[in-house]
Nucleic acid binder design. Structure first.
Lengths: 315, 315
DNA sequence: TTGTAAGCGTTATCAT
DNA sequence: ATGATAACGCTTACAA
């Protein structure tokens, strides 16, 4: 390549790395040659020859969870802007070629890994690899963690419903750590809360069933806090099926502030888990970890935020 | 590395490539050495030394459009299973480092690119790069295209509504090619269709507004076909605001069969655009294109499928 | 079937 | 400020 500019490869390399120790004249020569040849440095060669790959791997637990969109935004702000390339994979993206997404990342010699969501315990990440878990509750052995403060979110939900005059408050959840934490938060403010916690995944069906049980046992409940938006949606269905109006008869709120909740049609009051912030924080932690691999693992909690919409109203 | 197995690098290479011309004995030796050393071939070195990168780039127009999840599933089936690595980027994923996701892909020496959704016209893809547009209407110059047959979908919507006894049918859309095609399909079966097409993006708000106009002018409409699920959602809102029940007073259907439509709460009748199938098809086309770069660009239409749910009912 | 040696396109270390 | 040269970790003829 470099022949075109009439200089050595080393000089090209220096220009590419924006080194200041290059005369403007030579720099220009190289730059024009790059233009003319439509030249792009081979990432393969760069990461092979260089000391760092400048690449960070992001493992998504599931592309269907939309919160990763915001998480990525945050990660970009803290990582990409520092000159790192982001490579995204979900649990299945390159299986077959690799046993797990992590395999692929290791082959790519990524400098660090972000696990978005609940980490698979059997991910087999070498101890030397900097890792941060973003948004997941389960903490990986030596990994930093940046997550939503679910307990604070539960308290916020309580405060919101109390401020609207509700006293008979119900909770519907499932068997996840997040659900449990959110209930704990709620309970600190509303000790009298009545609950219906389903076993298994927090699905729409589970939400519908749970709210059914709840109302069977406590028909006087005037507000329901669901462990997440999907369950809240199930609750809305079940309530409608029973002829109960939301929010006139029963107030409903969810958690996560998913796009679903934000639609005008659903307009669900929810707790925003601040995914962008979590992403940014995770990126920063990862950089710190890379800079100092011996630093002790840290757990950061991000304060959530209430988003009031149409499904909650004054009693 | 290879020293551990007591063989040459070439032999290791052969084993890695699953070459049959290796004695079982040596192969075993290499395999155990790999285990013991926890060795992983460097993708950088592999793609630098090899003739092919075995990598395909996928450009998503927007991570917020969930249909790419299914598209990826299809792509995996046709591409990944053929030994190709998938690298996903959206329009913003690595900008800053690269001018566009395509820049990054070129640096990675991808063997082909899949544009998922509407292609940015200024993507600047070299003529020599195999490209297929998956799911987008706008066709890139020399690119193959695999897309949903929107016109057929429009006809299906018509048949569905007609079979339910509707005769006064309305359409709400926006200014996108897909919207126009879907209307065209509808119109072939229902020439008397009344329409309300908004300028701009097909958003929930646009859907609500459009259905408002439609009912103002044609209060006798008994069924509304929206250009997509999001607009349909807007329509549902507007209808509810007017005190009209769905489907008792008005039937509503959308297009795309998004996760939203599939929820029990919304239960929207929709047209499934068969994204998995589109992904698989796009992958196959891309492989064909790579195999024969001179082949003329082809346009493939995938037949959609009606998914009847609660928002449409017999008149 | 296995080994040898020459690259692949960069960066990095010395020189100059 | 610039260049020569040796890596980087593989693949791929070509030899043996």
């Amino acid at each position: 390549m470099a022949a075109r500019a009439g200089v050595s490869k080393s000089l090209v390399s220096l220009v590419l790395q924006r080194s200041p120790r290059v005369s403007d004249q030579r720099r220009q020569a190289v730059l024009t040659a790059i233009q003319e040849l439509d030249y792009r440095p081979s990432t393969a060669a760069v990461s092979l020859a260089g000391t760092r790959s400048r690449t960070i791997g992001v493992v998504l637990d599931d592309f269907r969870n939309q919160w990763f969109v915001d998480l990525l935004t945050g990660l970009r702000e803290s990582l990409q802007d520092q000159g790192h390339r982001l490579v995204v994979a979900d649990r299945f993206l390159n299986t077959g070629l690799d046993a797990s997404p992590v395999e692929g990342f290791l082959s790519m010699r990524v400098e660090g890994i972000v696990i978005a969501g609940e980490p698979d315990t059997d991910l087999a990440i070498p101890a030397s690899m900097p890792v941060v878990v973003a948004g997941g509750r389960a903490t990986l052995p030596r990994a930093d963690t940046v997550a939503n403060d679910d307990r604070a979110g539960g308290r916020m939900a309580a405060e919101h419903l109390l401020s609207l005059g509700h006293t008979r408050i119900g909770f519907v959840g499932a068997s996840s750590a997040a659900s449990a934490e959110r209930l704990t938060g709620l309970r600190t403010e509303v000790p009298t809360v009545v609950t219906s916690v389903m076993r298994g995944e927090p699905t729409e069906a589970a939400g519908a069933q749970a709210v059914g049980h709840l109302l069977d046992e406590h028909p006087d409940v005037t507000a329901v806090f669901a462990a997440n938006d999907v369950m809240a949606l199930g609750a809305l269905s079940a309530l409608a099926d029973r002829g109960l109006r939301v929010p006139e008869d029963v107030s409903v709120m969810g958690y996560d502030d998913t796009p679903l909740a934000a639609t005008a049609y659903v307009a669900l009051t929810s707790i925003d888990d601040r995914s962008v912030e979590i992403g940014r924080g995770a990126g920063e932690r990862l950089l710190a970890r890379i800079a100092d691999p011996t630093a002790p693992a840290q757990e950061t909690l991000v304060e959530p935020r209430l988003v009031a919409r149409r499904t909650t109203a004054r009693r």
